[in-house]
Design a protein around this nucleic acid. Structure first.
Length: 154
DNA sequence: GCCAACGTTGGC
DNA sequence: GCCAACGTTGGC
């Protein structure tokens, strides 16, 4: 079992939006970075743990726990000409982009970016590294355990 | 809105 | 295949 941190802009899809979806599940569409895509396509497995992270907002941080709910499959938005994620170079025969489904496990208190930064044992967390912009990053079991516990403290 | 950091594109 | 220009990300 692997663990991941997945960024979402709450103005697009927040943890509360996810909670309102059918089966509290969404397709993680819109990833247009090869490294992030490869994580979904090559490494994600059903049941992998996901830290649902709010980015580009007033209070960036981990907002809840989710899990990988499907294996990767073609991202539908790449085929939709009016969609902002449309990719003219992608075809049904050889799709370029894929996504997994992500299902909410539970909303937690917000574990802020600052709190993550301040934690002595989280200095290795990928999103805290200088210049990291990847929207999907692996999380170690040790990091997961720490953040999971932090989120539990209400 | 700024800006640092990084990824992608495309001319050569 | 190099690399300058450009676009995007995301915290502040």
């Amino acid at each position: 079992m692997a663990y991941w941190l997945m960024k979402s802009e709450p103005s697009d899809i927040s943890i509360d939006d996810l909670a309102k979806k059918a089966a509290q599940t969404i397709a993680w569409y819109g990833v247009r970075n090869y490294q992030a895509r490869n994580f979904m396509r090559d490494d994600m497995k059903l049941g992998d743990g996901v830290l649902f992270y709010h980015s580009s907002c007033a209070e960036p941080g981990v907002a809840g726990i989710a899990e990988v709910a499907s294996m990767a499959y073609p991202d539908e938005t790449q085929f939709q000409p009016k969609n902002k994620y449309f990719d003219a170079k992608s075809t049904r025969e050889t799709p370029r982009w894929c996504n997994v489904d992500v299902q909410l496990v539970k909303k937690t208190r917000l574990v802020s970016l600052q709190e993550l930064r301040d934690h002595a044992q989280l200095t290795t967390l990928r999103i805290l590294q200088r210049g990291n912009r990847l929207s999907i990053t692996p999380v170690t079991a040790a990091e997961w355990k720490i953040i999971f516990k932090l989120a539990e403290i209400n």
